[in-house]
Amino acid sequence: MRLAVLVLGLLLSLVTGAASLAPIPPSNRAALIHERLTEANLNRDHVMVVAHRAGWKKGGSTVRAENSFAAIDHAAATGVEMVELDVRRSQDGILVIMHDETLDRTTTCRGKVAEFTLKALRSCQLVVEGSRRVTDEHVFTLEEAMLHARGRILINIDNKLEPEALVEVADLARSLGMTDGVLLKLAVWNAERLQLARDIRRAIGPEIAFMPILADDAVTEAAFVDRTQSALGAPAAELVHWYRDASQPITADGGPLLSPLARATAIRNNAHLWINTYPITDRPEGMVAGGRGDYLALETGRPEDVWGFFVDRGVTIIQTDEPEAVIAWLDAQGLRRPYDLTN
């Protein structure tokens, strides 16, 4: 009898361990999210939330492996609309999920991702940064990530490869029947770069969401935002508002990309404005959000000076390392609407 109980317990533990890596049946939630993404003017009363690196932190501490299935599952369960996943390529040409050029920080392996075959990468277990706790997950492919997320949550692709790799990502999404499951993007800072973005836009097809990343060290006029959004048919523009001056800890007005004219431009193009409030390692807090980052909101108890500041300037998508806290604050302000999953 005792032996039978031990065997049953072992089987249950194996099943539980495998469950975190098994695809979860899709729902219709991703299609509803995609609809809100592509119809900004009908949904400005709802602020969407994107989990940076799929959602790896809580209260400033790393609590799960970044870019992991566990992070995707947690994000979907907590109401996040998109997970940001970083894409690189293995030695044998397979698109895989990994933020860094090397495996050292986030896995049990050492060396450059591009020097490992996919088979070799399968032996690299994901770890929780800081504690170095080894998880039951290994490095996985973009295709596996897309299948795992399918129907439940959108994937925001952070492409660490050449711009043309976005066409390969789009082809993969199309082959999986997930044209409404991904958002692709490219940094645009001048007319030449806009032309490259237009060429890529044509190559990936109009049915896949594609947006520019615009930073205010190069883009200083709302007219360029208008021209870019219009040329690309972009559902959103990801804005980078650089922290520059230590004598002015936080931005006073949001700069040219968050001006009333930029907001009017977004409305004219039926597009969202997107801001990133997550920190960059070894840089000042809120480095890409004019100093108004997640931990100014949390550590000083001033969410209205961070997330509220950007919402007041027309932002309707926030990418964050603290998605649960952002969603809770937005809910309290009446800035979230539930998704009808009954149909």
Score class of each variant (00 low, 15 high):
residue 3 L to A: 15
residue 6 L to V: 08
residue 8 L to E: 10
residue 11 L to N: 01
residue 11 L to S: 12
residue 14 L to M: 14
residue 19 A to I: 03
residue 25 P to G: 02
residue 30 A to F: 05
residue 32 L to P: 00
residue 34 H to S: 00
residue 36 R to V: 08
residue 39 E to C: 13
residue 46 H to E: 08
residue 51 A to N: 07
residue 51 A to K: 00
residue 52 H to N: 10
residue 53 R to Y: 04
residue 61 S to H: 12
residue 62 T to C: 10
residue 69 F to Q: 10
residue 69 F to H: 01
residue 72 I to M: 06
residue 73 D to H: 05
residue 77 A to S: 14
residue 77 A to Y: 09
residue 77 A to F: 07
residue 79 G to Q: 03
residue 83 V to W: 04
residue 84 E to W: 11
residue 84 E to P: 00
residue 85 L to T: 00
residue 88 R to F: 05
residue 92 D to L: 05
residue 97 I to M: 05
residue 103 L to K: 12
residue 106 T to F: 00
residue 108 T to F: 04
residue 110 R to P: 00
residue 110 R to I: 15
residue 114 A to I: 00
residue 115 E to F: 09
residue 116 F to R: 09
residue 116 F to Q: 05
residue 125 Q to C: 10
residue 127 V to Y: 08
residue 128 V to L: 03
residue 129 E to H: 12
residue 131 S to Y: 03
residue 131 S to C: 02
residue 133 R to S: 15
residue 133 R to Y: 13
residue 138 H to A: 13
residue 138 H to M: 10
residue 140 F to G: 05
residue 143 E to T: 01
residue 146 M to R: 03
residue 149 A to L: 12
residue 154 L to K: 08
residue 154 L to Y: 01
residue 155 I to Y: 07
residue 157 I to S: 10
residue 161 L to Q: 08
residue 166 L to F: 07
residue 168 E to M: 01
residue 171 D to H: 14
residue 174 R to L: 13
residue 176 L to M: 03
residue 181 G to E: 07
residue 182 V to N: 03
residue 185 K to D: 06
residue 190 N to G: 09
residue 192 E to L: 12
residue 192 E to H: 02
residue 195 Q to E: 15
residue 196 L to D: 13
residue 208 I to W: 11
residue 208 I to V: 13
residue 209 A to T: 11
residue 214 L to K: 09
residue 215 A to T: 05
residue 218 A to W: 14
residue 219 V to T: 10
residue 219 V to G: 10
residue 220 T to A: 04
residue 221 E to G: 11
residue 223 A to P: 00
residue 227 R to H: 12
residue 231 A to I: 06
residue 234 A to C: 03
residue 238 E to T: 00
residue 243 Y to V: 02
residue 243 Y to K: 01
residue 246 A to Q: 01
residue 254 G to F: 03
residue 254 G to E: 04
residue 257 L to T: 09
residue 263 R to G: 05
residue 265 T to F: 06
residue 267 I to W: 11
residue 267 I to T: 13
residue 269 N to F: 04
residue 270 N to R: 09
residue 271 A to Q: 08
residue 271 A to M: 07
residue 275 I to A: 07
residue 279 P to M: 01
residue 280 I to F: 09
residue 286 G to Q: 12
residue 287 M to L: 14
residue 293 G to R: 04
residue 295 Y to I: 00
residue 300 T to W: 12
residue 301 G to V: 04
residue 302 R to P: 03
residue 303 P to C: 00
residue 304 E to S: 01
residue 305 D to P: 07
residue 309 F to I: 08
residue 311 V to A: 04
residue 313 R to E: 07
residue 314 G to E: 03
residue 314 G to Q: 09
residue 315 V to I: 10
residue 319 Q to W: 02
residue 321 D to L: 11
residue 324 E to W: 05
residue 332 A to P: 10
residue 332 A to G: 13
residue 334 G to M: 12
residue 334 G to T: 08
residue 338 P to D: 06
residue 340 D to R: 06
residue 343 N to W: 15
